[in-house]
């Protein structure tokens, strides 16, 4: 099994993500710098980690989404390679057009950094198969721009097609319909603001994030 974690200037969850993928999935994981124009061959997973790529200049994720490596990521996603974007990674995926909508400043203006309760809305995806539908899990968030926005038609389409993967079970950032994570149409791209890679062993205060990676092993193997 092979995975790549993309690194941008200002990424800060890249190593945590690589540790989670290596430790839980046992995948050979390479860190790929944003200026690369090609990805390693035969990838089973691409992860876009959290952080503040390019200092959040212009808009969160805007500059990263136009960096050279993202063209390769978009092409891989279109071929069906699983892509997981967490936090800044979710922002980058929307800016790159792989997921609909946009992530705006939190409704309360403040940076939110705490563990939140999430409801698993779709347990049929390659990322969520080890959760139960409707289950509540605890995963940390740490973001300033996590307020998911899309027009009503897009939101209805996401909900109608089971593309809402996770919803906040408590007020967090003003997201439309409390959306915390969404899938693309073909189900191989997941973007989510909460950090599953920060909740993978008991010393983290819980391990609810672990099953996302465990589920991927089964789907990919």
């Amino acid at each position: 099994m092979r995975a790549a974690v993309i690194q941008f200037p200002g990424s800060n969850c890249d190593r945590d993500m690589a540790v989670a993928i290596r430790q839980i999935m046992g995948a050979e994981t390479s860190l790929v710098w944003h200026r690369e124009t090609a990805l390693p061959d035969n990838l089973d997973l691409i992860a876009i980690p959290g952080g503040f790529s390019y200092g959040d200049y212009l808009r969160s994720g805007a500059m990263a989404a136009r960096s050279p490596v993202m063209q390769a990521v978009v092409a891989a996603a279109q071929r069906g390679v699983p892509v997981l974007g967490v936090c800044n990674g979710f922002q980058i995926l929307t800016e790159a057009g792989l997921l609909p909508g946009a992530l705006m400043r939190n409704a309360g203006i403040r940076f939110v950094c705490r563990t939140v309760q999430l409801k698993v809305e779709n347990s049929q995806s390659i990322f969520t198969s080890q959760y139960d539908s409707g289950e509540t899990i605890a995963i940390p968030v740490a973001h300033h721009d996590g307020n998911y926005f899309a027009d009503a038609e897009t939101l209805d389409r996401l909900e109608g097609n089971g593309r809402v993967a996770f919803r906040y079970a408590e007020p967090v950032n003003g997201s439309s319909r409390n959306i915390a994570g969404i899938l693309n149409d073909s189900g191989n791209v997941l973007g989510m603001m909460p950090h599953p890679e920060r909740m993978i062993e008991d010393v983290h205060g819980g391990s609810d994030g672990r099953r996302l990676f465990e589920g991927l092993i089964r789907q990919i193997a």
Binding site: R59, A62, T94, P100, A102, M104, F149
Partner: peptide
């Protein structure tokens, strides 16, 4: 439309 503005918002 490609960079300076995010046409979604």
């Amino acid at each position: 439309s490609k960079l300076l503005a995010n046409m979604v918002i």
